[in-house]
Amino acid sequence: SADYSSLTVVQLKDLLTKRNLSVGGLKNELVQRLIKDDEESKGE
């Protein structure tokens, strides 16, 4: 998976916004949300 932890919070929020995901929470939560979304989209 992508190394989201190396991105800035601003970059993470931009990715979340593009996916229509919540941008609330700490950086670690944003990273986990993106990883979870990646895993769910692979399952389709």
Rank of each mutant, 00 (worst) to 15 (best):
V10Q: 15
G24M: 15
S6P: 04
T8C: 06
K13G: 03
K42C: 10
D14H: 13
D14I: 15
K18N: 07
Q11Y: 04
A2Y: 14
N28I: 11
K42E: 09
D14R: 15
Q32S: 08
D37G: 05
S41P: 08
R19P: 00
S22V: 06
N20Q: 08
L7H: 04
S5F: 12
L26M: 11
L15V: 05
V9E: 08
G43Y: 11
S41K: 15
V9W: 06
G25P: 02
D38R: 04
E39F: 10
L16N: 01
D37A: 11
V9L: 12
L16T: 01
G43V: 12
V9R: 06
T17K: 15
V23A: 09
G43A: 12
S41F: 09
L12V: 02
I35W: 06
L21M: 06
K42V: 09
D3T: 09
L21P: 01
S22E: 09
E29Q: 08
D38I: 05
L34R: 00
D3Y: 15
V23C: 08
V23M: 06
S41N: 13
K18A: 10
S6R: 13
L15D: 02
V10D: 15
S5L: 10
K18M: 10
Q11M: 07
V31S: 03
E40Q: 13
S5P: 06
V9P: 04
D3Q: 11
S6M: 11
V31F: 03
N20E: 06
Y4N: 00
S6D: 08
D3S: 09
L12D: 00
L21S: 01
D3W: 15
L7I: 02
G43L: 13
K18E: 08
K42Q: 11
E40P: 06
N20I: 03
T17S: 13
L16H: 00
R33Q: 03
D14Q: 14
S5E: 12
T17Y: 11
L34K: 01
S6L: 11
Q32G: 07
D37C: 07
K27C: 06
D14C: 15
V10M: 14
S5Y: 15
T8Y: 03
K36D: 13
R33A: 05
N28S: 13
L30G: 00
A2V: 14
G24T: 15
E29A: 07
K13V: 11
K13M: 11
E39P: 03
T8A: 05
R33S: 03
K27W: 09
S1Q: 12
S41Y: 09
I35Q: 08
S41H: 15
E29G: 03
L34S: 00
K18Y: 07
L16S: 01
R19D: 00
